[in-house]
């Protein structure tokens, strides 16, 4: 045994309290897993959509997503979003959790994209707010317009895009939050989604948790051997190396996960423990969803004629 291994350990100098890149990364991984399980917990709540047959729910919510894509008038899109919020409440999903899940990332990202569309540069029209007038502004080789204003038409375009994305994402998240994963896969097969597509989804969902656990272990192992403050550059180097190691591990892991599924009879066909029979609540929900969709489309047509 080497002599250094027998020497008494010197207490390390205390490091800073600032969370490192790695700390945030590990926290992010844990948060992802928590969110996934929170979704499963929400799907077990005794709410309205949780009681609906997964096949009916899949078709109706996808139908509502399609309606969100095709209607163009702001009141129609707002009505769809309002309907989604009513469903969130009736399905007993905490509104705050839903908002974080459905409206934080995608709609905010969309907002960033549609910002230029609000200006006269992209969407000409009546000026709502003038940002600058008769000025020569250049950013490097690019010259900005001499006059730039936020236009009424631009705001309407941006609002339309935001409402459309928010409504579509809301219906999709509602489907995910109110349907157990296995039921969702089985419903996809029931509506004739190709077996290979469902199979890839099933494997990916199972595999992502194994991979996340491995990633968390790597990060924790590194943190347990890190004393004091580590530079952000070093953290990033480690993250790069860890990503490479994970990639190597991933094949062996995917084979294990797949083997475990195949060994228990999985042949690409997802099955659910629940027996699905259409009940009055399914028919009631389907009728309601269709009525809402029809009403929204009618409103859109009427508003189009008025305009």
């Amino acid at each position: 045994m080497p002599a250094w291994l027998l020497e008494p350990q010197v207490a390390p100098r205390a490091g800073g309290t600032r969370r490192s890149f790695l700390g945030r990364f590990a926290g992010g991984l844990g948060h992802f897993v928590e969110r996934a399980f929170a979704a499963d917990a929400a799907s077990a709540q005794p709410g309205l959509l949780q009681r609906v047959d997964p096949r009916v729910k899949l078709l109706t919510l996808l139908g509502l997503v399609l309606v969100s894509v095709f209607v163009t008038r702001l009141p129609s899109l707002a009505a769809l979003l309002a309907f989604a919020i009513v469903l969130v409440v009736l399905s007993r999903i905490p509104l705050r959790r839903f908002a974080v899940r459905a409206w934080l990332v995608v709609p905010l990202f969309t907002a960033a994209i549609v910002l230029p569309a609000m200006t006269s540069w992209v969407t000409p029209g009546d000026a709502l707010v003038t940002l600058w007038r008769d000025q020569r502004i250049a950013i490097g080789p690019w010259h900005l317009p001499q006059t730039l204003a936020i236009t009424t038409a631009g705001v309407a375009t941006a609002a339309r895009m935001l409402l459309r994305v928010s409504a579509a994402v809301s219906f999709s998240v509602l489907l995910a939050l109110t349907t157990r994963w296995n039921d969702l896969l089985a419903a996809l097969r029931a509506v004739r989604v190709p077996r290979l597509f469902v199979f890839v989804l099933a494997i990916a969902y199972r595999y992502v948790f194994v991979l996340l656990r491995a990633a968390q272990d790597l990060v924790l192992a590194r943190r347990s051997r890190t004393v004091g403050r580590v530079s952000a550059a070093e953290d990033r180097r480690f993250a790069g190396a860890a990503a490479g190691a994970l990639f190597g591990k991933s094949q062996a892991m995917s084979e294990e996960v797949y083997g475990a599924m195949v060994a228990r009879g999985y042949v690409g066909e997802a099955r659910s423990l629940d027996r699905w029979r259409l009940r009055p609540i399914d028919l009631g929900w389907a009728m309601t969803a269709m009525l809402v969709a029809a009403a929204v489309i009618a409103l859109d047509i009427v508003l189009g004629r008025v305009a």
Binding site: W181, F209, V210, R213
Partner: peptide, 11 residues
């Protein structure tokens, strides 16, 4: 860990 990834133990 490789074997257990349905939402619940019952599943």
């Amino acid at each position: 860990d490789a074997q257990l990834f349905t939402p619940t133990v019952r599943d």
